[in-house]
Design a protein around this nucleic acid. Sequence first.
DNA 1: TTGAAAGCGCTAACAG
DNA 2: CTGTTAGCGCTTTCAA
Lengths: 337, 337
Amino acid sequence: MTEFQPPGRLVTLADVAREAGVGESTVSRVLRNHGSYSKRAGERVAEAVARLGYVPNRLAGSLAGASTGTGTGLVGVVIPSLANVVFPDLLRGLTGALDGTGMQSVVGVSEYDAEREEALVAALLSWRPEALLLTGLEHTAGTVTLARASGVRVVEMIDTDGEGIDTVVGFSNRAAGQASARHLLARGYRRIGYCGHDPSADLRASKRLAGFEAALAEAGTALAEREIRPGRSSAASGRAGFEALIARRPGLDAVYFSNDDMALGGWFACLSLGLAVPERIALFGFNGLDFAEAMPQPLSTVRTPRLEIGRRAAACLTGTGPARIDLGFTLIEGATA
Amino acid sequence: MTEFQPPGRLVTLADVAREAGVGESTVSRVLRNHGSYSKRAGERVAEAVARLGYVPNRLAGSLAGASTGTGTGLVGVVIPSLANVVFPDLLRGLTGALDGTGMQSVVGVSEYDAEREEALVAALLSWRPEALLLTGLEHTAGTVTLARASGVRVVEMIDTDGEGIDTVVGFSNRAAGQASARHLLARGYRRIGYCGHDPSADLRASKRLAGFEAALAEAGTALAEREIRPGRSSAASGRAGFEALIARRPGLDAVYFSNDDMALGGWFACLSLGLAVPERIALFGFNGLDFAEAMPQPLSTVRTPRLEIGRRAAACLTGTGPARIDLGFTLIEGATA
DNA sequence: TTGAAAGCGCTAACAG
DNA sequence: CTGTTAGCGCTTTCAA
């Protein structure tokens, strides 16, 4: 298939230089279109590259360029999970914005474990990324030390409820919880239950709940009941949780879910149990996922700017100085609450 | 906070060696726990590392180790999208299996564009990964050439309907389509419609449909109607597509959807329109997503081994010789068809 | 416009 | 067990 005798080792820049009959530095200049070179040199190099199927070695390139500030073009990203759409969405906004800038993200998944996050940060930093994107504001002391010492820009995404290391891009989960509670209160619901997934991992869900309860307290009331399910959120978990909740406290007139997946499960349960929504019981979610608005009764929820957070985080990489960007959220007045 | 004067530049292995009062190679040996060194050397190095906050530079390490076969510990991955749960699930299986092996995946998103995939492959290969994981079997000639020339193991995930470059891990989308059709036929449905998202991008959906139609043809029948929606799949798209389909052909007795998200939208439409499922009309999806079994009527669908594909792909990285692993799929007899 | 040469930070022989 | 030394493949002065 190939017309030339491939060398046992991979083709190097030196091979290209020899093939093109020019010096190595000339090849380097041509390849990066940096510095000046003759048209003829450019052509010969291009030909040689094509002929040999040369693929630059960025390990070497970045190492050599490191001394003079030429970056690796890498950005290290740590997200807690891939099982919750929120984070792929975040990555989607990020990679979309990075696309064409020549930057490449390297992502690690912490599974909501701060220790693992620290290990990932250390591993990512060893590739000398130009920036570090973390999720949330809660990290181990080691993570913070590593991040600071690395000298690279650090962007913490999603959560703005607290102090950041450097730049923070997100929204207030606490405020989202408060807004949700106020909405339910304004609609007249008073016997409100909470149905959530395991909060020990998802600190942001806890912050929402805290905000929710604070708003209830402000109004002189409180959560009538709560059901916390082990494991990650899902429609199945939401369904089971709702059923448990309503069995224990049939008098509830509204349920606040830890997110839309859980709420969908709750809605499924209402359908099965023949509970009219929202007349008999109201449902409220969080995230504003795709399916929410396609439901026969659009789900009442809070839409979060997930893609935008990713995009803005990407924009911050080149930005100057620490920033604190609150992108807010949108309360969706659906038909379930 | 830090107790020592940080150098302007990042701490290097040479700094650690000086601080520990040993040679550089000793530090290297200690750090990688490779070769032998005295207990005392180990301790002194560990102290120095901690004191200086040393983070190894893997660019340099991998470059130096390259000549002797020490790899980068990187695996390049290209997926078509992050917007469809399928691919994050794939990554989840993959990173889960890679976790603890010291391997780190670097992923690129092609947005279902073969040209972009080629560019990503070239970019990823420039980091000298130890393996390349691609999605599907359809690539540009350039991608194939690059992959072959790189000399690294190539694993193509998800689709087994065709020839692979090297190793293939997945299931037959065509067979999944066939199985779905046979299920509907066996249940007595004869006026079957198809509701799908844009197939120009998602070739695997097209393969499923081809299998589906082939099975219908075998039974001497054919698709009664089809509705193809532009853009990516979603419940909203499925709902709109189903409504268009049923308006055009009210006589349909079953609808095959390009995936579960679309099918969920169809089910929502049935609820809104008051069409009894499956008595008046049956619905059939694809993927076997979480929510499918939590529905009041569990969705009839085909469950795909997404996580397992990722895991097996990871396992193949160390495997020997090309392989062709068909993980199959499971037809879920839900209550909608 | 170009090539020669000196590293980038690390690993891996090779002597000691 | 340990230090010295020679690169890994590339970028970047610096002269020419």
